[in-house]
Design a protein around this nucleic acid. Sequence first.
DNA 1: ATGGCCTGCAACGCAGGA
Length: 253
Amino acid sequence: MKLATWNVNSIRARLAHVLDWLAANKPDVLCLQETKVVDADFPIEPLRAAGYHVAYVGQKSYNGVATISRTAASDIVTAPPGLDGEQKRALALTVDNIRVINVYVPNGERVGSEKYEFKLKWLAALQRYLAAELARHRLLAIVGDFNIAPEDRDVYDPTVWRDQVLFSEPEHQALRELMGVGVIDVFRRFDQPPESFTWWDYRQGGFRRNHGLRIDHILCSADLAQRCVACTIDQTPRKLERPSDHAPVLAEI
DNA sequence: ATGGCCTGCAACGCAGGA
């Protein structure tokens, strides 16, 4: 099966790109982040017409996640324990016998800010939820925009980014601890081109100069990771007019 | 040239992103 994640920076602004990408890539599951729309206004019909079931949880203006799938999902959780605040950032469901947790981890604004502390607390709650889910599901993927670049090779200029938000030691520690619960970054299970990133700033010709970060991830339980045969970043939609600033990550499982 | 972008909201600039 093909499992993908993509921060679309507004599902309504990016609907045509998403539909085109679905037609071109035919994923079985696509997890979207930053849908930026209340549930009543989510554009379900065009996605259904494209042959997908849709689960979503959103809010006005900010955040919001959605998981679309070729086959119907079950056991859908839109407010996981500990992640059930005002900000809609997590959505879990089971599809094709695989537990899929879709997350939009807080950005954190800047090291030491209130939002940064919120990010670390949110990651700790996510770790607890992930541990509980792993106890129930042998085949599990947790995917999405983690807003953390794990290693030096995931940042275009580690010297510039050192100790900055998205690349600070407390964030690295939080991600390591979360992964220590029992999930693997499948992107690094395979040979990859150097300087592979998933996000590029809209400003300063970030994409053209490949000034990016790898902050969107597909993390799989050991048994699911074993089934994974490929994991790639698709830069194609980042080259379109009015793109999302993130590119999709796609795993073949 | 020391800043350059994008989205949604209700504006006629702002908050937030990363």
